[in-house]
Structure formats: structure tokens, C-alpha cells
Simulated assay, not measured.
Amino acid sequence: MTNITTWTCAELLRGESSKPYALIVVNQPTRKDLLDKAWKAATTKLCADGGANRLYDVDNDKIYLPDIIKGDFDSIREDVRSYYTSRGVKVIQDKDEYSTDLMKCIAEVPEDYSLVLLGGLSGRVDQTVHTMSLLHKLHREVYVLDGESFAWLLREIDHHTMGQTCGILPVGIDSARVKTKWLKWDTDKPVLWTCEIRPL
């Protein structure tokens, strides 16, 4: 009998958690409502370099302080860095040229934590592809919340929180076998899944 693991975004979108989540804010525009829910669900919170700018700019009431800001610091604004440093946030500059700011943040997260990336599916194409590649390479639960989209490496589907549109993308493999059931056009192959988020 096959051991099936179900990954669902339902508790994340309710701002709840039954396991440890690490939220990583990346340097892309973010929705305040998604930030609010993901922040409540997360055990630890990080900003990947310019992600600190995004958090600072969307957090009008200045109620959110990340645990760590990490990156090569080619993007973080000086006023943002000073603000978070003055409030005791751990700020780590890592100039390693062989890892992205996102990878640097992931290195700070315990292996038994699930990852929630806030942003990562819009903006520069190379950054979007990098995010999708990480979903494929990391042997852990990774969710990406970005604007109207939500993505993870497909295991099982949660129909309660998904909208009407979806996409299936073969990433990091030469060929794919996808199997779907009850979609308008079903298929039978393992791939990356993206979907629209229902209104919160």
C-alpha cells in the first residue's frame, strides 16, 4: 500500500498551524492579507534581503518584526535595515556568491520545518524559475504564496481552498507523468501544481 502524504494550504490561509512553519518574505510585491495569515501561522519569520523592504512597506502599523533578515544586502534599503536593527532583529550579511538570498534564508531554518515563501512567482523570470526549481529540489514541504497564485510540488489536492483555475508544470525533469481526476481536462503525470486562491 502506498503511503500518501496530503499537503494543504487550508491552515495557512486561516492563519493556523499544526506543525512548525518558517515564513520567508522574498523581494517581490506581496498582499497584506496573505502576509497577515502566513505570519500568524509561522513559527519563525525571515526576510530574504530586499524582502525586508517589502515587509516594511506593506506593514503600515509596523507590527511585524522578523526573526532574521539575511542576504548579500544588495537590495535592502538602509532606512529599513536601520529600523529593524534598532528593534533587535537579527541581521546577517552573507556575501556568498554561490547561493541566492532565498537559499541563504533556507539555511537558517531547521530541517523539520515546512517552508512558506511569500512571493516568488512573479517579477524576474530567473527568480521565478529559481523558486520553482527549489520546490522540486528541496525534500521538504514548501509552499509559495504570491498574489493570486499558490504553488507547491504536487502531492494531494485540497479542493476547499483552491479556486477554479490551475496549472500543471513539469519542472526539473526530462519527462513527466501526470494523473488528475475531476479536472476539465484530466491527465496522469507527476509535476508542479499552481492554482488560484479562493477569496479569504
Results as ranks from 00 to 15, higher is better:
residue 186 D to S: 15
residue 146 D to L: 04
residue 163 G to V: 13
residue 55 L to C: 02
residue 68 I to F: 00
residue 104 K to E: 04
residue 83 Y to K: 01
residue 13 L to R: 06
residue 14 R to G: 07
residue 100 T to R: 02
residue 145 L to F: 10
residue 62 K to R: 08
residue 37 K to Y: 07
residue 33 D to W: 04
residue 60 N to P: 02
residue 105 C to F: 02
residue 166 C to N: 13
residue 110 P to Y: 06
residue 181 K to Y: 10
residue 64 Y to W: 04
residue 135 L to G: 09
residue 43 T to W: 12
residue 72 D to Q: 00
residue 128 T to N: 08
residue 125 V to L: 11
residue 86 S to Y: 08
residue 110 P to Q: 05
residue 100 T to C: 14
residue 1 M to Q: 04
residue 166 C to A: 06
residue 19 K to F: 11
residue 173 I to V: 15
residue 173 I to N: 15
residue 156 E to C: 14
residue 127 Q to L: 11
residue 100 T to S: 06
residue 122 S to N: 05
residue 78 E to W: 11
residue 100 T to M: 09
residue 17 S to D: 14
residue 120 G to E: 05
residue 9 C to D: 13
residue 158 D to A: 02
residue 18 S to L: 15
residue 140 R to L: 12
residue 113 Y to S: 13
residue 54 R to V: 04
residue 53 N to S: 04
residue 149 S to F: 11
residue 96 D to I: 04
residue 63 I to K: 05
residue 48 A to C: 01
residue 76 I to K: 00
residue 129 V to P: 08
residue 93 Q to F: 11
residue 159 H to F: 15
residue 129 V to H: 10
residue 95 K to T: 11
residue 102 L to P: 01
residue 106 I to H: 03
residue 152 W to R: 15
residue 32 K to N: 14
residue 81 R to K: 13
residue 184 K to W: 03
residue 155 R to I: 12
residue 61 D to P: 03
residue 61 D to N: 14
residue 71 G to T: 07
residue 132 M to N: 14
residue 79 D to C: 10
residue 174 D to M: 09
residue 149 S to M: 15
residue 111 E to K: 12
residue 123 G to S: 04
residue 160 H to G: 15
residue 168 I to R: 10
residue 49 D to Q: 11
residue 71 G to K: 05
residue 196 E to A: 02
residue 21 Y to A: 04
residue 174 D to K: 04
residue 45 K to Q: 02
residue 102 L to M: 06
residue 167 G to L: 14
residue 18 S to P: 09
residue 133 S to K: 12
residue 2 T to K: 10
residue 2 T to E: 03
residue 145 L to A: 03
residue 192 L to Y: 09
residue 16 E to I: 07
residue 27 N to G: 09
residue 85 T to K: 09
residue 59 D to Y: 00
residue 56 Y to N: 00
residue 99 S to H: 12
residue 113 Y to H: 15
residue 165 T to G: 12
residue 100 T to A: 03
residue 118 L to K: 10
residue 198 R to Y: 08
residue 14 R to M: 06
residue 177 R to I: 14
residue 193 W to R: 04
residue 138 L to G: 08
residue 33 D to T: 01
